[in-house]
Nucleic acid binder design. Sequence first.
DNA 1: ACTAGGTGTTTTACTCGTGAAGGAGTGTGG
DNA 2: CCACACTCCTTCACGAGTAAAACACCTAGT
Lengths: 161, 161
Amino acid sequence: MDVVGRIREQWREQYPDLDLAPIEVIGRVRRLAALTNQRHDEVLDDLRLSRMEFEVLSALRRAGGGLRPSQLTREMLSSGAATTKRLARLEEDGLITRSTSVRDRREIDVRLTEHGRSVIDRVFPAQLDRERALLDPLTDDERARLGELLAKVLAPMDLAG
Amino acid sequence: MDVVGRIREQWREQYPDLDLAPIEVIGRVRRLAALTNQRHDEVLDDLRLSRMEFEVLSALRRAGGGLRPSQLTREMLSSGAATTKRLARLEEDGLITRSTSVRDRREIDVRLTEHGRSVIDRVFPAQLDRERALLDPLTDDERARLGELLAKVLAPMDLAG
DNA sequence: ACTAGGTGTTTTACTCGTGAAGGAGTGTGG
DNA sequence: CCACACTCCTTCACGAGTAAAACACCTAGT
């Protein structure tokens, strides 16, 4: 039995009449996220890059072109203030540029620099390998099934909030 | 297609030759954890209780008796310093007591007060209902299968560290 | 008994996130 | 045209987390 299974056992002893089934999913999702975040951080620490800075570079890289801070904020499920700080730091490190849009001068166009792009092109595949290794215990079919089931839970939540 | 599916599409356009399958699982796990944490927080905000304080009370409640700070730290995957701060606040609010152990005076025995216990006995079932609602899109079989698959990924990680 | 080393908790100094207020820019109805 | 409402981004004040050092205590070898 895994850690979450033992936790559920403990709860069952305390609350024998409660339906504790949701723990099996939600508890594991939260714990798995915490652990994968830790692993992610270990790799990035060596590169003097925080996980959230990595997220910014990733969002820019996969968008293919420039993004505005408000778009980045939406992608990252965090506050606008956090985005400003991350961008300031990434700009100082020469990984991105910020330029005010000509058509609407409230808007900022955030873009990867040459250097920023080369960093993310190096780091992203390495992170992907790391993630693939975590899924080694699953067969390809199981991995696909797991992805489907997660999508089924996630889809309505993303619509709602 | 859900948000993570669209993100994978974007990556595929940028890196057509990379195996992006891990995103389907890891990306969804992380996003789902972030969203469920947000929901959790909403409920707790009304009660002037932070999510991490709730985690402390939960760990104590399901343990059935007293725990030491180091045990709580392990349960919560966070630093010892964080545990100290949370316990200080919970003690001030009258939800727990801290007493130094007699046999080994380095150790602290953390226990729920009457009040702390009544708070968690009220809040925990409510959170469980909330979590059950999130899993409504799944049949019972799907929920069970999802739990199993997550356990399969989680078990080796928990052993490792 | 003394001390060297180990363990359990707290303190310190710092980073990073947040909500709310602020500043700058756009645009619309009178 | 101009004031008012709205949007986008940033700044501010603060709360919470962390790593590392400090502190308190125990224990085993001499």
